[in-house]
Every structure is written in structure tokens, then in C-alpha cells.
Design a protein around this nucleic acid. Structure first.
Lengths: 343, 343
DNA sequence: CTGTTAGCGCATTCAC
DNA sequence: GTGAATGCGCTAACAG
């Protein structure tokens, strides 16, 4: 026999389909007796409501989407994990839309906004265009931004400026005067992170009286290899930096590698700081800035579910900031170490 | 105005809904002229087909599911990444069902097999019960197993026995006689991985003439902390092992930590091997067994999509094996090093 | 080639 | 409290 429908259940239980539907949806206006009878038949037949039909009728899929660039990046995976965890206790499922190539971004957006897929979308680290926001709006799909912002749209922002500021401030307070910044170039997905970190760097330089030397600012992708080659360039400078702050832990690992190969001791000869605090960072003992993925995930899911429940509600914006995690790759610059070791 | 339906498009274009549907589904039996006209109207109205309605009618959701235990584990995340990559070029979306607690396993299985969710399911590292397989069957949902097996069900198996064998064989050929095995205890999700590795260990011991000493077999969860404490126990033995092979890279990292704290040099005083080859392993220079997540993901997605396309097709089972990745944490045991260094 | 029609399985009126 | 009827938006079968 084929998959039983609500009608089969109704017939078998000697009731109308409406009643079965009410039992299914925990409608209280059903007598105890019939409720039990129906439930029993449901169990016996192994009946499961057809989600597609239900979605068509009720206009809700009980699925949340998450749209993210580059599934490949560590940080996104960790955010994803938090989201999954936050969703677990809810009745929602999670559907993933990954944007690997910038070229198919329009199609993917179109696709994921098609009605009947998800009830709402978590958008991670994507700077949305007006057109895209309009698209979500016309699809009547609530969205919550993670690590980005758009006027009038709910989201959890990451304060990259002040997070980066903390990093540079930490290095400056240790006594460093020559601090380099290695980040990635802007890409189509999220152009403003980079400039935020840059401004945080500048602000800290200003506050602590450091000279932001142009040669100390390098760009490369978020990878160990790229971090390594950037570090090699920096360390070959006539006046090499005494500390290197990178926009990602991965790059910082590359910097550590370069230092090791040059026979430099970290942090005595060179201080190194990463960004994100991916799991690797702890293992390596990397001083870094921890981005609160847990808060990001939890808050965003909560915001999205209430947004779905209360359609009209006003957009809310929350803001979270990274925290300094001091481990063993930062210390005072060589010039100050004699003083430091004399109590 | 509300979201346009296929009827609006039909009216606007002066055709019947059937024609619009044909254009949408790339049915060739439509004249060039009408096709263009309809396409134009679709564009103008910003029409998007309602996926829920389509799913209800066509009985296909164009979504694949992946069911996995413990999203938290590195290895699963990496497999997930490969799956996402393999799915990207297909018209399928990906929905994730994570099984964090064994207790809600029945509900989750019931939930994810409800019709209208996904067209098929990738089941990772779960040893399914008869009941569960029956459930998938009665839901008429094709499944492909990754890293597990069930008679008559398609899947990509991981040959843990021979993978572990390679690890121990590697250590034995280096000259080690005292090789310990640290794995995790069996859990409800996938009881047989552990015994497979154990048998691979035993087989290698037998082939290479090692004594499988009971004290050399320890269990703990897949974490650095657990690996560390296991190593401490082993190294405190009157006759400590000269090599430790762990069932996960994470545990191996813990072993390295323990060794470091004891002032042991790796690999001179102690050889360490991991399992899985997660990204961390490469960074640390850990010798390990690489499990082919790429193949696992690609094969499984391919198998599932063909299974969906050709319903009746016979179950296929493929088998992949780990490969030895020799890095810098393994070497000859202390007793042989004098000979080794003399050419 | 194209228009019309009949449900897919369910939630939701509206009567009773 | 409960049953019967209506249609969500779409595809597929049929008629032209």
C-alpha cells in the first residue's frame, strides 16, 4: 500500500479529515476520546503529514535557510555550527545555500528566495545590494544579517573596527612601535570588513602614537600560504615590523611559519596576532581576537524566528564585539625585553 | 500586489497556464514566439514558481538531506563541505539534520523522513537499525550511506580495518614493538568503527609479530583533553609504548601535548599517529591516515542522485580506504635510532 | 503546438 | 465538537 494520506486516517478512524487535521495541529477543540482514537490510527498506519501539501496550504515550510559565502572558510563553518545548535530545539530544519563563485550570486539569490523553500533566511557576511534586499522584500522573506548591515534590516553586526583596535592596542601597550597589518583584499562578498579593520588599526595607531607606515599594510587571501609570503615580504623590509596582526588566524599561522623558518623566536623576536579565534588558534597558542560565533548564531536565530512569528515587527540591530585572547605569540618588542625581564 | 502566480503570468501573456508551465519546465513543445513572450512576462512580473506547490504536485522537492551525528566533529564538517561542493553544480539544495543526542534519534528520523522534505538522504556514519531502514523504505526515500553499511542499501564504506592496519604497519616497519591504540568507546551512533580499527590493529600486530598488550588499549572521547590523559596513563606504565596510534587526530594532538609536557621529543622518544587527517593535522605535521572525504562526498552525491533518477536501480556499494600520510611525528623507536643514524 | 481540466494532501472556513 | 466543502499553485493528461 502506498503512503497513507489524511483521508485514509479519517476513514479508518471514522471521522472527518478536518478532525484529523485538528488533532495533528494540536487544536484543543477535539474531545479526548476522538483525539485518542485518531492518534491511535495515525500510529497504526504510520501516517506522516505531507510537508509539501502542508507548506502549500499554510504558507510555511518550517525551514530556515542560511546563505553564506565560501563554505570553505573555517569561520563560517563555526558560525554554521552555532546556528545548527541554536535551531536544534526549535521545530525548524536548516537548509544551506552556499555562494562559492561571485558569478552565480544572482541566480543563487533568486533561487533561494523562491517561495516554498524557507520561511526566513540567515545571511552571513554578505554585503547585500539594494537589488538583493528588494528581492527578499518582494519575496516577503524575512532575513537577519550576520556580520553585515543594511538600513532597516535586522541583523547582528560584528564590530570589526573596535575588534581590530583591541588587537593593535594590545600590541601597542606591550611597547610595539612597528606594527604591520596583513588582511585580505576586498572581495565582492563583503567589501567593508577590511576597511573596518583598517580603520581600527589606524585609530589605535593614532591613540597610541604609532606611525601607520604604508609598507606595513599587505593584502593576501585568507590562507597560511598567503600569510607566510606576506610575512616574508615584511621581514625583508629594511625596517621590519616587530609585530604582525593579521585579519585571519590562518594567515597568522603562515606568519608563524615564516618566522620559524627565519629562525626568529616568537614572541621574543616577533609578536603575532590573528583574528577570529578558530579552533586551530587555541592549539597553536596564538594570541588573537575572538569573534563571538555563539552569540552571533544564537541571537540571529532568535531574531529570525521572532521575525517570522511577528511579521510586522520593527527591525532590530544588535552589535557584538570581539574579545582579546592573549596566548603565547605576543610579548614586548626586543627593544624592551631587558627592562621587562628586570623586576 | 501580492506574489504573482502562474495564472497571472498566463493571463498577462495571453496563454494558458499549461503553456507557462511548459516554458518553466523547458518543455520543447512550445513555439519560439510564445516561449519568448511568456519568458518576458515572467521577467516583468518577477514571477517565481512556488516550490511548495510544485513539490506537492510533482512529488519532488529538489532537495537532498544529510543526516549526521554530532555536527561538532571536525571530520563531519569536512565531509559536509565536500558534499556541499558536489551538490553545488546540481539543481539540488541541501538540508541538514543533525543528531546531537541519541535520545531524540527516533523523532529526528521520523521527522526527516516525512514526505515533502527531501528527495533523498545522505546518511553519515550512522549504523542504522532495521527499524530505521524500514522507515526510510516505507517513506520511499532513497538513501546512501557514508561510512557505514547495511545489506541491500547503497553506500560508500570506509575500510577502517585496513586503514588502521596501515597505521600500525607503518609503525611496525619503523621498528616499533610496543604500539598503543587510543580510540573512543563505542557509542550509539556508530558502534562498529571502533572494532574495525581494533581488528586492523590486531591484524597488523599479528603480521608484524607484535604483542597486543591489553594495557595498551585505551578509550576516551575524541578530544585533545582525552587524548592527553590517555597518553599520560600510557607513559606512566612500567613498560610505556614507543608509539601511540589514536582513532582521531584530535586525540593525537593531546598525545603530543602530553609528550611535550613530559619533555619527550617526538618522534625520537615517542612516535604519534592520528586518524582522519583533519586540517589541523597538516599544520602540526602529524603523521596520520587520511580518510578520503572528497571521494566520500562526491561518490555519495552521485549515487544518490542516480538513485533518485532511476528508482528501481540495484544498490551499489563502494569502498574507499584511507591512505598513509607520513609527516614528522613518526620515526624509528629509540632502540633503533643508533643504527638508523649510521649509514 | 496550445488551452482546459483534474487533482496532489492538507488547513480552513462554514454549517450542523 | 465535528463533518463537508473549498482551494493553495502547480503539473500532467487530454483534447483540440
Amino acid at each position: 500500500m502506498s503512503k497513507p494520506s489524511i483521508r485514509d486516517v479519517a476513514r479508518e478512524a471514522g471521522v472527518g479529515v478536518g478532525t484529523v487535521s485538528r488533532v495533528l495541529n494540536h487544536d484543543l477543540r477535539v474531545s479526548e476520546a476522538t483525539r485518542n482514537r485518531v492518534a491511535e490510527v495515525i500510529r497504526q498506519l504510520g501516517y506522516t503529514p505531507d510537508l509539501a501539501a502542508r507548506a502549500l496550504r499554510s504558507r510555511r515550510t518550517n525551514t530556515l535557510g542560511v546563505l553564506l559565502p565560501l563554505f570553505t572558510r573555517h569561520f563560517y563553518v563555526e558560525v554554521l555550527r552555532e546556528i545548527e545548535e541554536a535551531i536544534a530545539p526549535t521545530p525548524y530544519s536548516l537548509t544551506i545555500f552556499s555562494l562559492e563563485r561571485a558569478s552565480d550570486r544572482p541566480q543563487r539569490i533568486e533561487h533561494c528566495t523562491s517561495h516554498g523553500h524557507v520561511d526566513g533566511m540567515l545571511v552571513i557576511s554578505l554585503t547585500l545590494t539594494d537589488r538583493e534586499v528588494a528581492r527578499f522584500r518582494s519575496a516577503d522573506m524575512p532575513i537577519v544579517l550576520l556580520d553585515s548591515a543594511y538600513p532597516g534590516v535586522s541583523g547582528v553586526e560584528l564590530d570589526h573596527l573596535n575588534s581590530a583596535y583591541q588587537a593593535v592596542a594590545h600590541l601597542a601597550s606591550l611597547g610595539h612601535k612597528r606594527v604591520a597589518l596583513v588582511d585580505r583584499p576586498q572581495d565582492a562578498f563583503s567589501p567593508d570588513r577590511i576597511s573596518d579593520r583598517w580603520h581600527g588599526y589606524l585609530k589605535a595607531c593614532h591613540d597610541y602614537g604609532l606611525d601607520p607606515i604604508p609598507e606595513y599594510r599587505l593584502m593576501g587571501e585568507y590562507s597560511r600560504a598567503s600569510g607566510k609570503s606576506s610575512a616574508e615580504r615584511l621581514l625583508s623590509l629594511p625596517q621590519p615590523p616587530t609585530a604582525i596582526f593579521t585579519g585571519s588566524d590562518l594567515q597568522a599561522l603562515g606568519v608563524l611559519e615564516a618566522a620559524r623558518e627565519r629562525g626568529l623566536t616568537v614572541p621574543d623576536d616577533l609578536s603575532v596576532m590573528g583574528y577570529h579565534d578558530i579552533q586551530l588558534a587555541e592549539y597553536v597558542g596564538l594570541t588573537t581576537v575572538r569573534l563571538p560565533t555563539v552569540d552571533l548564531g544564537r541571537m540571529a536565530v532568535e531574531m529570525l524566528t521572532t521575525l517570522i512569528a511577528e511579521r510586522g515587527s520593527d527591525p532590530v540591530t544588535r552589535r557584538v564585539i570581539g574579545t582579546l585572547v592573549t596566548r603565547s605569540t605576543t610579548g614586548p618588542p626586543p627593544s624592551l625585553q631587558k627592562h621587562a625581564s628586570a623586576p
